[in-house]
């Protein structure tokens, strides 16, 4: 049983199809990662699930409901949160204001959620009054994730959260993401750092040219000789 699944997704940004009958899903309390070579359509698959591109075929199902026709904003309101790879924070606003903006659509309980996020990401509590643009790369990613968590989403989608951060920061970020998962959220992320991502993945998809190539648990794929040879550098 998966809470969010994109089934047989086929489509692209107007031109040629990038996705070819690609299926990706995630359930509550697990981390699903999408890995694969450059240009495999990893981010595109995720964006399709958020509704940022029109699917020619296939559908997106959330909580047993077909949401293929909903706009990204509506999907966000339904409980799917998304952290873009770049430009994912309001740089001129304080950390706290970033979080408040995350909860923009909510009427109440914002302060409580902010407290929970501060507990999850203690560094943010420390820097709450600072402009988000002044923070380090890893801290900015935490602000971005925190902002997305403000809607109390059932699904959190992360587009390459560790792009451009140092290995130490990456480990730290993955630790935080595991903690997010433990709160019962379904985490779906696209990752370049395939080996480290598979290490924490409960479910993993290897995409190649917009198609599912391998699917399994993180440890299964890590153990798979072909996956190791082709995608993990041996």
């Amino acid at each position: 049983m998966t809470i969010l699944v994109g089934e047989n997704m086929t489509g692209g940004y107007g031109g040629a199809d990038i996705l070819h009958s690609c299926t990706v899903g995630v359930d509550r309390g697990e981390i699903a990662v999408i890995v694969g070579p450059n240009g495999a359509g990893k981010s595109t698959a995720m964006k399709a699930m958020l509704g940022m591109l029109q699917l020619r075929e296939g559908r997106v199902v959330y909580n047993d409901k077909d949401i293929t026709q909903l706009t990204p904003q509506d999907r966000v309101a339904e409980g799917i949160a998304f952290v873009p790879q770049t430009n994912n924070i309001f740089t001129t606003m304080t950390v706290e204001e970033n979080l408040q903006m995350g909860g923009y659509l909510r009427d109440s309980g914002i302060d409580q959620t902010i407290q929970q996020i501060y507990e999850l990401f203690p560094i943010l509590a420390e820097k709450r009054r600072q402009a988000a643009g002044e923070l380090s790369g890893g801290q900015r990613q935490q602000v971005a994730v925190g902002r997305a968590m403000m809607t109390e989403p059932a699904v959190l989608m992360l587009d390459e959260p560790t792009a451009g951060v140092s290995p130490i920061v990456m480990d730290e970020l993955f630790d935080r993401i595991i903690e997010v998962k433990r709160t019962g959220v379904a985490v779906l992320m696209v990752e370049q750092n395939a080996r480290q991502a598979l290490n924490i993945a409960d479910k993993a998809y290897v995409l190649v040219t917009g198609e599912n190539r391998h699917t399994g648990t993180g440890s299964e794929l890590l153990a798979d000789a072909e996956v190791r040879k082709s995608f993990l550098g041996g």
Partner: peptide, 18 residues
């Protein structure tokens, strides 16, 4: 705040439901 957010990062503001 929504105005400032929109001015700062339009796409993200839209994603936040502004």
């Amino acid at each position: 705040k929504a105005m400032r957010a929109f001015s700062d990062n339009e796409d993200l503001a839209l994603l936040s439901g502004v």
